[in-house]
Nucleic acid binder design. Structure first.
Lengths: 242, 242
DNA sequence: CGTGTACTTGAGTGGGCTCAAGCAGGGTGG
DNA sequence: CCACCCTGCTTGAGCCCACTCAAGTACACG
């Protein structure tokens, strides 16, 4: 358990300019008229979070939502025994945390995986803005349904019954694919284990095997790279269950 | 795999009277003015589904949503290998299926567990109604977030890593508790296995043990009862992980 | 009475967890 | 600059739980 995850240290990058945001049409505000956005974004700050930083603590009241522009965020539940379970991954265009509608406190911690660029919107402004813009509500509902769909996919395909760690790992790696190429987002073995509900040693063994077979390769010379290259066809073959 | 699950046979009970519905304030329409509801409910039919009936097929376009008034509905994904995985349970007050916002086809089958009473609302009327009532949208968002929260809870606590079937089963039984009493909704062993990702024989062994210990007891003399009585404290003790 | 479904119980085996030790890399401080 | 530590990854050995296969029981249904 990295101690860094508990640091709430972040780097504020200045005020956001939502109107000029390249991602505006992918984000949650896509359906809101430009005029309305321009009157709103003075409350929005641009942040850069280093890897391992805690965006939102479990059990704390949610003070703000974050629109993720770059990098990934993991939503983690901690067992009383000290173990961690990752219940969701947020990527570009996702919003953390939206559960304010159902309860004021967060059910899980949100931790940056790698470096994360995000816009911070204080909760009062966000709720007020949402109330006044029905189209935004519809977008939020869409996002929520997407998340639900992904969660159900994890339930059915990643954690499913009598699957070997080999198959589970292959399926997870395929879910971490980026942009339809052969680039895979690289998680630590411990993080993969926390997603799959599997010991990190078991993940290590499988990944080592995939590297040996040439199915996986480390992208970039530096070992600290956040990416891998994967043989998609081979992974899909393994993921089909054998 | 019960063949009955593929029958789309249902019993129409007549037109619904939403205004007089005892559950109106728990349901998804709770925030909509009574006048608006009265102009709408002529399109709503009251249905009773026998156990095992398929409400909504996976891969089919969603033609209607169902508001569940009584009984439970399981959302099932079928593996190519023939196995089934239950990804969610719907109970009184829940709505099946809401995923129309993100895609027009259902990702899973919805099957009645026990007898189900539900109101059927054709999709066109529902979408139109939702468009005109922002408060309904907010309710839908709440429902979606509730479902998401439940799914994450399953991910973290039911399917979590190195947990024994004993612990998983105890936790599932506690989640099936009704109304804060000692009554537990009874699923078949196969259904519990499909939720937990565990062989039904393993469930059988654990349940047999719980019955032997007196932690569980069959409610009602008839074996076909849909309820059990459970020693909540003992179950919680086991669920704490041992 | 026969059939099909669900449940039960047993025996054997194998995969993954656990414990443990060794290794590599990066950061820190002297 | 080097020693040190801390974190994450790797690899091994042994054991146990749960899966699998299989057979038998109970019950509902026609």
């Amino acid at each position: 358990m990295p101690k860094a995850a508990y640091l709430q240290q972040s780097v504020r990058n200045g005020r956001s300019n939502c109107c000029a945001c390249a991602l505006r049409h992918e984000m949650v505000f896509s359906e809101v008229a430009l005029d309305d956005v321009s009157g709103f974004h003075h409350h929005v700050d641009d942040y850069v979070f280093p890897a391992g930083v805690l965006l939102q603590g479990a059990g704390r009241p949610a003070e703000a939502v974050y629109c993720i522009k770059r990098g990934a965020v993991k939503l983690v539940k901690y067992d009383p025994n000290g173990g961690q379970r990752i219940v969701r991954l947020l990527k570009k265009g996702d919003v953390a945390d939206l559960q304010w509608t159902v309860s004021a406190v967060a059910q899980h911690a949100a931790v940056a995986v790698g470096e994360v660029h995000a816009c911070r919107i204080p909760m009062p402004f966000f709720t007020d803005f949402a109330r006044r813009h029905p189209k935004l509500q519809l977008r939020l509902l869409q996002k929520s349904q997407e998340a639900l769909r992904e969660a159900e996919l994890w339930l059915a395909q990643l954690l499913g019954g009598a699957l070997s760690v080999r198959v589970k790992t292959a399926r997870l790696l395929l879910r971490l694919r980026q942009d339809d190429g052969d680039r895979l987002y690289r998680l630590s073995n411990e993080e993969m284990g926390a997603i799959l509900g599997v010991a990190h040693e078991s993940v290590s063994r499988v990944v080592a095997e995939f590297l040996r077979l040439g199915i996986l390769a480390r992208a970039g010379a530096d070992a600290g790279s956040r990416h891998l290259r994967g043989d998609i066809a081979a992974l899909e073959d393994i993921a089909m269950n054998s």
